[in-house]
């Protein structure tokens, strides 16, 4: 485990369980902007039956000291129940969904479809001149797919940001 004085940058996936109340997302985002922290990705949705709790997943980066500070700052927000650093606490799975629109013709269409198949992307919309691929996976996989589509008529991307859970029996 890196020490607090380690100055190398690392990426952290942080999950935060919050009361699903007005302003809670603004509070979290305001904390990041007000203190100059990065947000690489952020997702939020209610996660219990009654809709009282939401889970916010944040991917951020910084030195160990900054990431510890981010967690401490999140933890002291009044509507926050739990803060978990999935990156540090053990193995975790993180997935995101992307919709990728490709506008292309002729042999580029065949190529795009073949790559889509190898990435297990689904075609959720098609016209004679375009596809919309849907794929889920780790951020790196989606980055790789988008990179490949750049030469095949990549037109537009919509990504969800990550959803993440610890592996095994651990819960936050």
């Amino acid at each position: 485990m890196p020490g607090i004085s380690d100055t190398t940058q690392r990426s952290a996936t942080i999950s935060v369980l919050v009361d699903n109340e007005a302003g809670v997302l603004a509070r979290v985002i305001g904390l990041f902007s007000g203190r100059g922290y990065n947000i690489d990705s952020l997702t939020v949705a209610p996660v219990d039956d009654a809709g009282r709790r939401s889970r916010i997943n944040i991917v951020t980066s910084g030195t160990s000291m900054v990431i510890e500070q981010i967690k401490a700052q999140l933890d002291r927000l009044v509507p926050v129940h739990r803060v978990a650093d999935l990156t540090m606490d053990g193995p975790h799975v993180a997935r995101e969904l992307a919709l990728v629109k490709v506008i292309c013709t002729a042999e580029q269409r065949v190529e795009a479809l073949q790559i889509g198949t190898s990435f297990r992307a689904r075609v959720v919309d098609t016209t004679l001149g375009s596809f919309v691929f849907e794929l889920t996976g780790a951020t790196e996989k989606i980055d790789a797919f988008i990179e490949l589509m750049r030469n095949l008529g990549l037109a537009e991307v919509s990504r969800s940001g990550i959803a993440a859970l610890a592996r095994g029996t651990r819960v936050i």
């Binding site: 607090i4 000291m65 510890e68 500070q69 401490a72 700052q73 933890d75 002291r76």
Partner: peptide
Amino acid sequence: IDGSSINK
């Protein structure tokens, strides 16, 4: 008492 004051 404020964990965020430590190691800041």
